[in-house]
């Protein structure tokens, strides 16, 4: 089984901690001049997203997690799973609700996402930073009101609800930052 010594620890390294795959956020080497050295590590559990801290004796080895971030194209949802395809190998995987979570609201067919695979099974999906979506439901637009600065909720084709300026209407295509959920502007089409 592959493992890493604390000497190899660095941000982004994937380790198995208590049966879950985790990614190192921060690694601090601490050592009293004459004493035992330690690595104090902050990790993110890749399944739950939770942040944890661990202290290791320096030189110790920790089991590596077989975790890979892969660029994949979102294909479709069959009601049970979201299906993705690696555009290089045409290999397809299905991600369940636990892996997709809140990302589901941003998933538009054909868009490229980052799928995190653990032992080749998806455990997390990261949407593109920017997505272009069509508004499917919103209150009637106040045409011409491009200056008042007011906003209203708008539902998009993928189910996401974002705050948009009052002048937008159903059928308009907009650009959104998925990291903040903020409306960025109208998409030029």
């Amino acid at each position: 089984m592959a493992s890493y010594s604390t000497n190899e620890f660095r941000g982004g390294l994937k380790l198995m901690i208590d049966g879950d795959p985790c990614s190192i956020i921060e690694n601090e080497f601490v050592k009293p001049g004459k004493g035992q050295a330690f690595n104090r590590v902050k990790l993110r559990n890749l399944k739950t997203g939770r942040v944890l801290e661990k202290t290791y004796k320096s030189g110790e080895s920790v089991e590596a997690a077989d975790v890979m971030d892969t660029d994949m194209q979102y294909l479709y949802n069959d009601g049970d799973a979201w299906h993705f395809m690696d555009p290089n190998t045409f290999e397809q995987v299905g991600a369940d609700e636990a892996a997709v979570g809140d990302t589901a609201q941003w998933l538009k067919e054909q868009d490229m996402c980052v799928v995190t695979l653990w032992n080749e099974v998806p455990i997390a999906v990261t949407p593109p930073n920017h997505v272009t979506l069509t508004i499917t439901e919103t209150d009637p637009g106040l045409r011409g009101d491009t200056a008042s600065g007011g906003t209203k909720p708008a539902k998009c084709e993928t189910g996401a609800v974002v705050k948009v300026p009052l002048f937008l209407e159903e059928g308009d295509v907009i650009k959104i930052d998925t990291r903040t959920g903020e409306y960025l502007g109208r998409a030029k089409d």
């Binding site: 601490v30 009293p32 004493g35 035992q36 330690f38 104090r40 202290t55 004796k57």
Partner: peptide, 11 residues
Amino acid sequence: RQAYLDLIMSS
């Protein structure tokens, strides 16, 4: 025991 003292001292 000394290693645990080092651990508490440094952390």
